[in-house]
Amino acid sequence: MPVMKYNHASQLLFVFVLYISFIAVPVLADTSVAEGKKLALEYCVACHQFTGTNQAGSLGPPLLVMKSRFPDRKTIYNIIYDPAVAIKPHTMMPPFGRNKLINKAEINKIIDFLYSL
């Protein structure tokens, strides 16, 4: 086994990657979809149907095949953040992001969930 020679910089980099993974891992992938679903069930069912809802409202369109209809994450992000800007001024959909009901990370989890539909 050849002896590896680390220089100072790569050591720092290694530690940094370790650090990032330490804080980021719990938030990734599967858990994100599950948490997104929980959030959607809390904030969106009043008006939208999607897989896994019963007693959902019918005020907004059903959230179906989201990935093909909204290939750009940013579009959905903007809708959830402030539909009065992203959709139309008189929309009844609440501005979840603008009014700080849901934060950025949570919006992204919801999008992860919507993309799984």
């Binding site: 050591q11 290694f14 530690v15």
Partner: peptide, 21 residues
Amino acid sequence: NKIIFCILFFFLLLVSTPGLS
């Protein structure tokens, strides 16, 4: 020395992360 330095640096980063500290 380097190992100790690395460990210290790691904790420093963790501690300086808002919400974790």
